[in-house]
Write a protein that binds this DNA or RNA. Structure first.
Lengths: 199, 199
DNA sequence: ACTCGATGCTAGCACCGCTAGACAACCGAG
DNA sequence: CTCGGTTGTCTAGCGGTGCTAGCATCGAGT
């Protein structure tokens, strides 16, 4: 069955190519520029090929979103584990927040695919895809220790995440001046993180 | 020049009709359903008429956004002034937050026009339209008193607004379960509002 | 009463997401 | 080695989008 295996491999390769190309095009020119025609041309296949891999444009966005979620989780864990342990939770939370906003700023198209556009992915649901759950888990790990007494860590993480999301989207849409983004982040961390002992 | 005045009046009426119809259609079926053809049919004119009032669809969204911003400002002021003064700033901020999120939930299309879609409006800029400035001012009035010592009230308001915006958008997009929305709001208010004296 | 400019219309452009149906290339069987 | 059938890809096209050119009609001012 080597022939069939080869075909499956090639097919998987092409699927990765589609997702990577869609992402690249979106980062370069925005999601509006990601049309099935342009995407097909870039991968050097005709449009219907896209539909043999994905149900439609929405699913392609969803695939980019999943990829992005996995990367975001890695990025966040790297940022928090990189912060000096001696500096306590405050430093970890700050590193987490900055890493999150940095990711959103660096990969706006991927961020949009995850949280702004409709990728057809189920959130906050039992059958939420693993990468999305894992992204949330990466936040939870660091934020749980500053949730405060009697506060559900999950709920606290949701609130913190929402706040970061608000900063990310409003800043990128030009609703908030980019200049003082860092000060806003610090202010948010100061207020939201209930500090057990130190300041 | 009564003739000309009448024409101008009729023209202004028709412009209001366009905006109101666009808003209505968006609230009923979402902004995707607001196409120039459908909109033209509803106002009982042909498509090109729309373009004699607005540069394009974007400007129509912008007009809805401005209308919404004015309403939001009124709503927020009503909510904060309605809160019993005796209960202190905490109650006012809570009322403000709930009013904001309630507005976003009640008028999702208008909220999208303001903060999610591109209406071509300049934000955080000197020539930002008055209704938008006023909406921000309505937030600032109540939030300034809980910004805390040494914290720029404007910056604090931006952070608070961003957090509310994050909750609003993530909740409405199904990214956060709607069930505990109120608890999230209270948690946010508890943490962000620096309370001068009482609890 | 007639001219002429303003105004709204029909028709059409280029593009969108998506799909039906024709066609070619390849595989396994005889 | 040839043939039949399946698998896969392409061309062409559908109904929709935002937007615009150019014509026809209507009404105001002389």
């Amino acid at each position: 069955m080597s022939v069939q295996e080869r075909k499956e491999r090639e097919r998987a390769d092409r699927e990765r190519l589609i997702v990577a190309t869609a992402r690249e095009l979106a980062e370069q020119q925005g999601w509006d520029a990601v049309t099935t025609r342009r995407l097909a041309e870039r991968i050097e296949y005709s449009q219907p090929v896209l539909y043999s891999h994905f149900r439609g444009k929405r699913e392609i966005i969803g695939a980019v979103a999943l990829q992005g979620a996995a990367e975001l989780a890695v990025t966040l864990r790297a940022a928090t584990s990189g912060a000096p342990a001696a500096e306590g939770p405050r430093a970890r939370v700050s590193a987490l927040a900055h890493a999150y906003l940095d990711f959103a700023g660096r990969h706006p198209a991927v961020y949009d695919a995850m949280f702004q556009l409709d990728g057809g992915l189920p959130f906050a649901h039992e059958d939420t895809p693993q990468p999305l759950k894992d992204g949330f888990a990466a936040l939870l790990e660091t934020l749980a220790e500053v949730a405060g007494d009697g506060v559900d860590p999950g709920l606290f993480t949701e609130v913190f995440w929402a706040s970061l999301h608000g900063l990310a989207t409003l800043t990128r849409a030009g609703r908030l001046p980019r200049a003082e983004a860092a000060r806003r982040t610090e202010l948010l961390v100061d207020r939201l993180a209930a500090l057990p002992a130190d300041a």
